Each structure stands twice: as structure tokens, then as C-alpha cells.
Simulated assay, not measured.
Amino acid sequence: MSIINIKDVQIKTLAERIVLAIREIAGPGPAALHEPSFAGNEWLYLKECLDSTFVSSVGKFVDRFESDLAMFTGAKYAISVVNGTAALHIALKLAGVKANDEVLIPALTFVASANAVTYCNAIPHFVDSENETLGVNVSKLRDYLISHTEQRAGCCINLTSGRVIRALVPTHVFGHPADLDGLLAIAHDFNINLIEDAAESLGSYYHDQHTGTFGLLGVLSFNGNKTITTGGGGAILTNNLALARHAKHLTTTAKLPHLWEYYHDEIGYNYRLPNLNAALGCAQLEQLPSILSAKRELFIKYQNVFAKIEGITLMAEPAQSYSNYWLQTLLLDSNLIVKRDEILQATNDSGYMTRPAWILLNKLESFKQYPRMNLETALLLSKCLINIPSSPGLNKNNG
């Protein structure tokens, strides 16, 4: 006779209860992780582009989208580009990142962060995360920099490699603002430029100020799975006029204005956002307040059902923050980590798209050789996080 382990029975019941909890909110399914909502002027604005024939990088919607973004976020300037990775690439260049410089980025983030650093021929330097925000662990990073760096001629020097640490790029993970007070203090104290990766946090605020507007520069993404979408697309935010002008210049192939001649005064990039995509973005921005409201209501509904399940915590916005709740996130108690994949299998088999956090960047073959601090918290978080269906339409359809 086989012996049944009561813990296995309980864990199996847990997976089933998670499926039922999601079903209670998302309906019978299937349910995507995050799909766009087109309920406004998208068709009207796209038709206007087609009728006018301005479908590429010239057209009124590009200027309007940038103006609307600046107004919504409170940034003085917004420069639209083809995607969030391009935005970060240019932001790094504007912040002075050069070949062989190091850039501090969290190990727990999307691979685009490390990719953009390498586009500058610079070195990703991976740092740890914290449980409260899922963002950079400020106190641990400060201690690490105190013991591993020194100041020379106004630059932060890595004592091990001898390289300049030029920038710090924190991510507002899943839309939850990182500890910006602490990050700004580190940037100031160690002479490091702060570039916010706000790709996931459009509509998120820290002390009532929009994310992406605290550092020297910030970047946004409008990929198809983001809070609003332009199909593909991104933006650079800054309050510095000179940087804004240079960003626009670099992302439009560094061409000097002229009626007919093509003269480019530096190496530029064809990162312009087409008018078609900007038109979609304008319509999406008009709906952003209602989308954010629906996502917050969805969080409250999920919070109510998951509060009844032991061993599961629904990630809530950090203190002093207002999150857009881009992706609703479950955190498993440490004793349940071994069953994470079982939960992922059960939910996906039931038609509810769920996914774990990213594999830590330092574990990817392309980045194994790069410097890193102790990453124990990021490693634990990568094993215990599960994103669940988060589309704003779930709240509308199953309220």
C-alpha cells in the first residue's frame, strides 16, 4: 500500500484553489495575461492617418502623442520612439554611458535592460532586489558601493574592475514604484546618473509624482501587453531641454533640418515612432484614467479572493506609492516554491495564462560573465512570483 503525503494533498488543493480564485474573477476563460483594450477613438484616428496618407514618421499624431504624454506624466518633454529598448539605448547615451563603462541594473528585470547597456558597448553590473517593492534594494546597494567603489575626479570607480560606474537603471517592476528617495540619494552620493526604467509603470506615482520623472531621464514602453499600447513604441522622458533636443535628433537619424539636403552631423538612429502608432497611442491615452481605475478594481477583487488562500500573497503597491497594477502578482510562501511550476501548469491548462518572473539576467548565457553583487533576494523572488491575468477588461466583463 502506498503512503499519501498529506503535504502533497494540500499543495494539490492549493493549485486547484488558485485556479478557482482566478476563475471567480476572470470568468470561465480563456484569459490572456494582459491584452489591450480598444474602446475609444482608435479606429477614427487610424482612419485619419490613412486618409491623410501620413502613416510614417511625419504627421500630427506624433507631436500630439508626445505633448499628451508630457502632460499626463508631468515631464517637461517626451520623445516618442519605436520601442522601450530603443528609448533606454538613447537614454544611456544621453547620460554619457560610453564603451567599457558599467551600468547598475537589477538582475530581476526584463532582458531589454541588459541588452540596451551592451548596445553602448558598456558593461551590465547586476544588483539585488527587495521584497517590499520588487525593485532595487537600496540599503544593500549602498553598502555594496561603499565597500566596492571609490570616487576619482567626480566618477564612481569599481575597485575590482577599475571601470567607471556611469549610471543606475532601476525598474519599477510590474508597475510598482521602486524606492526613489533612496535611489536618488545613491545617485547623488556616488555621482551616478539615474535613469528610470518606467516601461511597466505608466500611471504609477511615488509621493504623487509620476514615475520616470525623478531621474535625469526615464523611459516608457507601449508594447502590446502594456497598460496602453501603440502596437510597438516607447518614449523618453526628461525635464532637461538640451537632452530632449538631443534625444529627438539622435532618434531621427541625426539629420539637420533642411528642405532637401540630407546632412547628418553624428551617428544617429532610425528610432522614429510612425504616425500610425502615435495615433493609436493618442486614443489609448484618452482612455488611460478609466483603464487605471479598472485595473485597481481588479486588484481589489483579486485581493478579496486570494486573502482566503493560505500561503499566497497578492502583491500590493508599496508605501508612499500609487501603482498602475500593470501585472497582478502572486507571491508564494517559501515552503510552496517547490510547487510553483505545478501551479503554473494547472492555471495554464485551465485556460488562464500565468507566468513566472524572468530568469535572473546573470543566469542567461549572454550575461554570465558580467559583475554582480550578492543576489539572494532576487533569486528567491524569481522563484516565488507568479503573474496572473491582469487585463483591465476582466474587471468589466466579470464584475
Rank of each mutant, 00 (worst) to 15 (best):
S2F: 00
I3Y: 03
I3V: 04
I4S: 00
K7Y: 05
D8T: 01
V9K: 02
Q10Y: 05
A15V: 03
A15H: 01
I18F: 02
I18W: 00
R23G: 02
A26R: 03
A32P: 12
P36L: 01
L44E: 12
T53G: 12
V55L: 15
S56G: 15
G59S: 14
G59T: 14
K60R: 15
F61P: 10
D63H: 12
R64M: 10
S67D: 15
F72S: 04
T73E: 04
G74W: 11
A75L: 14
K76H: 14
N83W: 00
G84N: 07
L88Y: 02
I90M: 12
A91K: 01
A91P: 11
A95S: 14
G96V: 08
V97C: 09
N100E: 13
I105P: 01
A107F: 03
F110I: 06
A112C: 07
N115P: 08
N115R: 12
V117K: 06
Y119V: 14
P124N: 02
H125R: 11
V127N: 06
D128M: 05
E130F: 09
E130P: 10
V136F: 07
V138H: 01
K140W: 06
K140I: 08
D143K: 13
I146G: 07
S147V: 04
T149D: 04
R152V: 15
R152M: 12
I157E: 13
I157V: 10
R163C: 11
I165A: 11
H172G: 13
H172W: 05
V173M: 11
P177S: 10
A178S: 12
D179H: 02
F190V: 10
N191S: 10
L194D: 14
L194Q: 06
L194W: 02
D197K: 06
S201D: 12
S204V: 11
D208S: 15
F214Y: 05
F214D: 04
S221R: 02
K226P: 02
G233P: 00
G233L: 03
G233Q: 01
G233K: 00
G234E: 14
G234P: 05
A235I: 10
A242E: 14
R245V: 12
K248Q: 06
H249F: 12
T251K: 02
T252G: 07
T252S: 13
A254Y: 00
W260M: 05
W260E: 09
D265S: 15
I267G: 08
I267P: 10
G268L: 06
R272N: 12
R272C: 08
P274I: 05
N275G: 07
N275P: 11
A283F: 05
L285K: 03
L285E: 08
E286P: 03
E286Y: 08
S293D: 15
S293A: 13
S293K: 15
K295L: 11
R296M: 14
F299S: 08
K301N: 09
V305C: 05
F306N: 07
A307M: 09
E310F: 08
G311S: 06
I312M: 06
L314G: 04
M315F: 15
A319C: 11
S321I: 04
L327E: 14
Q328S: 07
L331S: 13
L332Q: 07
S334F: 07
I337A: 09
K339G: 01
Q345M: 10
Q345H: 14
T347N: 06
A357H: 02
W358Y: 12
L360Q: 05
N387C: 13
